[in-house]
Design a protein around this nucleic acid. Sequence first.
RNA 1: GGGUUCGUAGCUCAGUUGGUUAGAGCGCAACAUUGACAUUGUUGAGGUCACUGGUUCAAUUCCAGCCGGACCCACCA
Length: 727
Amino acid sequence: MNIEEKSYNPNKTEIEILNFWERNNLYTPEYKESRKKTFSIPLPPPNANGTLHLGHVSGYTYQDILARYKRLKGYKVLLVPGKDHASIQTEVVFEKVLEKKGIKKRDLGREEFYKQCFDFCIINSNNIRSQEKRIGLSADFSREKFTLDEDLNRIVNETFKEMFDQGLVYRGKRIINWCPKCFTALADIDTEYEEEESFLYYIKYGDLIVATTRPETIIADTAIAVNPRDKRYKHLIGKVIEFKSLEGLKTLPVIGDRVVDINFGTGVLKVTPGHSKEDFRLGEIHNLPIISVIDQRGKMTYGKYKGLKVKEARDLIVKELEDLDLIKKIEKIKHSIQICERSKTVIEPLISYQWFLKTKDMASSAIRALEEEKIHIHPKRQEKNYVQWLENLEDWCISRQLWWGQRIPVYYCGGKETIISENGDITEKILGCGNTFVSLDEPKECPFCKSSKIVQDEDIFDTWFSSSQWPYSVLGGLNSKDFKEFYPEDVMETGRDILFSWVSRMVMLSLYKTKKVPFRDVYLHGIVLDKDGQKQSKSKGNGMDPSTFIDKFGTDALRLSLVSGNAADQDLRLYEEKVKGFRNFINKIYNSARYILLQTENLSSEDKKYIRENLGYRVKMKDFSIQKEQEKHIRNIEKLLEKFDIGIAAFNIQNFYHHTYCDIYIEKTKEYQTLDMKAELIYTLLQNIIVMHPFIPFITENIYQTLKEKDLITPLDTSLMYEKFPL
RNA sequence: GGGUUCGUAGCUCAGUUGGUUAGAGCGCAACAUUGACAUUGUUGAGGUCACUGGUUCAAUUCCAGCCGGACCCACCA
């Protein structure tokens, strides 16, 4: 720092310090190769399809605070960075990029699309990386991974092969959320609900009246369901009813199940296992046949309706039912429909062949790991959510009908074909010798019949299947040097919104693959909201760019704004005035250091030597003890960080430095103009910048370098990063 | 329907196993200040700690209920 300058200029200084850190290679654990105790965090990889937002910066700040703290405590620290290919999200984003150039995905073809999308992600990753560096994230960028790197693909495929060999994955007929526009199966998490005005049709099934919003699926009914506690219909359970229908006389069995809501409609439900998730489940329990009448384009496949869109068919069928006098009444209702999160298209629940992972045993291992306290979640109350989610977990559909991702390494001898029988039942037939096999390298022939005619599965893995293997894949797999040294890792720090979709799956897959938990502590942070407490979103236009805050107020100020005073798990509002307040605090630190340096400016080299050799608490004040206050403060920060009260710790360093150290202590020292007092000022300043360094690395490093230049301290290392946290 | 969370000063939020006078920042008012800090200091105003009960010598804190806001999961025929 230049003590001629009366106020702090964060931008200029921060860039200089970043260059200094990078030049000296301080982020890599090898910098202190001999350290024994390790501390590592697999950094949640941001999606390589955009830029960093404040949520990322908030996460990175927590991670970096822990890393820098542990370095000061003598640990060998590794933060491993990465980027996620984010399969469906990126595919949609990149399709839009292509669209602007007038190019369609299918025109490019699978291979070329993949190649261009890869390049697109590399460009984004480079941008993201420079943003990550700019916020002072002390990650070892030489170890950075992308989830579609060759070695990571290999690890993912190996995992799948193990699962396949052990019979943990299977290709099954399941009902899935199908998006007719994106042409893919979607996880529940990739869908959302929307209120829609619609009609409820009361249709006669003989003497029974069924209320439905989807009359077009009547032809795929395979049962009628009622609640066994419903006195009106109880006696019908187990019977078969015969009634006049669209297709003439029809018979359907009546089943009893408690999911049927007695108070909805007439209390009678038509069961269509081929086109409704709940009905599919009923079909499984009651062993009902499955009939499909809608295809993947969202068009009818049945009889004379063939080729019609669902809504067109609905109108036609309603008209026919009316003509047959089968409709009792039509009611207007509001109900919510499931839509694709990306394309906003109405989801069509369809039967399809997908790859599934049996999760039951993995889920119970993941629960056990928590119960045996091998994993701790902060805040603790989230543990309940974790357990509950795992307890109710169903088999995981890990295949997606997309191009952007790892292609499933399954091969069919001679290919396969899907057969829809006359009654709409879907089956699949493997051609050739009828065998399916998994191969890590591209196979030349079928291992069973030696035929060279083999076809790879078209599908790719669900993006979470690869990201759930992040804790060990990011280290380079089970045989790598880093894995041996750093696994299990120490902390997973991530948004509380992905506790289920990501954290619990990482635990499951890591336990499966490595027999160990991936990390010991999970810290969950909340969401960064705007000034009015609204979630940032593109559609609302209230998104905030981290770089505007950094340019205006500096990184240290932004880092504090994102964590200070915030308890784990809690959402946080961010706005300019807040960041400005922290900028003022950073300037206060600058000026207090400047004041102390001014006190020592004209000292002789002997006096400076005296100061260097006599750092410590040297002056007894009448009514105040900085030693007592300072030691209490340091212990408190230590305690808070050890139990992951990071936001409270950040709040306390500010409170202490500003109101105890500056307002009380420094003011009092003005009465004691001795060399011992100066030595004590230097000493207490050094202690404070060490303690504050994890939170605000730039200003503290800046002061440290100045103390070094002025020969006022005997440094332990090139950088403040490797000083010792005071005992 | 199941679960989580919040309600404390005008605003944004803390309050660490129950314990004197409930705190900070911003804002507001007054005073000081050629000061290390046009980005500072001191002082002050402002709170029935959402509401109602209970446990206790003692409740913002624990329990039950209730009102109001946010969120997650499941379901919506």
